[in-house]
Amino acid sequence: MQHTISALVHNRPGVLADMADKFKGHDVNIRSISAGETEKPEITRIVISVDGQSEDVKAIRQAMSTMEVVISVDDMDRRDFVDRELALIKVAMDRESTTQLMQIFEVFRANVVGMGTETITVEMTGDEERVAAFVRMLAPFGIKSMCRTGMIALKRGDD
């Protein structure tokens, strides 16, 4: 089962490694991990998307919450939240495929950020499912390389 954990932590060296270390010993796979400063430079938000059993994820969240650098840990799956991911994708391109690729880019609101003689590089943002659908649409053309940021997320509403 997929879970999304959001943690606010004090912005100090080693915090991300210490947080990731809490997953050792549990049969939980980290699918993506993103970290960045919040509106307060001394505080970092870490968003971790994981596959694992609810009991294991709960134990990991509890272990994280006992760390002195942790301000709060939240299981985003219990709340309505907005998530986004950025993907940079380099796709094979030839004269015959250019029009089709440009139509796909338009549908997904992807932006061309680089072009070579045989490839085109695009950036696309969206939720995880939308990025995955974009990747599936580009796969038949030949994805030469790809980099995804991993999920970032915030609760909806006034929380």
Rank of each mutant, 00 (worst) to 15 (best):
E55N: 12
V113E: 03
F108R: 11
D127V: 09
T99C: 07
L88V: 13
R84N: 13
R79S: 07
T125I: 13
A132T: 13
D74R: 14
D127C: 11
V73N: 09
Q62Y: 05
D27N: 12
M115Q: 15
E37S: 12
T4F: 03
I71V: 14
T38C: 09
P13Q: 08
V70E: 02
G150Y: 06
E39Y: 05
T44S: 11
A17I: 07
E85N: 04
L88A: 10
I143Q: 04
L154D: 08
T117Q: 09
R148H: 09
A87F: 09
S49K: 08
V28E: 02
D83L: 00
M137N: 11
M19W: 01
S145R: 15
I60A: 03
G142R: 03
T99H: 06
E123C: 13
E39L: 05
V47S: 07
K155L: 09
V57T: 02
G25P: 09
M76E: 07
N111E: 13
A7R: 02
K90P: 06
Q100I: 11
K22E: 10
T38P: 11
A132E: 15
F105P: 05
A110S: 10
D74P: 00
K144M: 10
V135W: 02
L138N: 06
S49T: 15
I152P: 03
D21Q: 14
I48D: 02
M124V: 15
E128N: 10
T149R: 10
S34F: 02
R84D: 08
Q53V: 10
V122Q: 01
A133G: 02
T117P: 08
E68I: 11
S6L: 04
S34N: 10
K22P: 00
V135R: 07
V70L: 04
A63I: 00
M146L: 15
E68H: 06
K40Q: 12
A139N: 12
D158T: 13
L101S: 01
A153M: 02
I43R: 00
D127W: 03
K24S: 13
V50L: 05
I71A: 00
V131H: 04
D51H: 10
D18S: 14
V9D: 01
V112L: 13
D51V: 04
V82L: 14
L101W: 01
L154F: 12
E129V: 09
K90M: 12
L16K: 07
F108A: 09
K90W: 07
V91I: 15
V122A: 15
V135C: 04
P41E: 13
P41F: 06
I143C: 06
E68C: 00
A20H: 01
I48Y: 03
E123M: 14
D83K: 06
F141P: 07
M151C: 08
K58D: 14
T99W: 00
T44F: 03
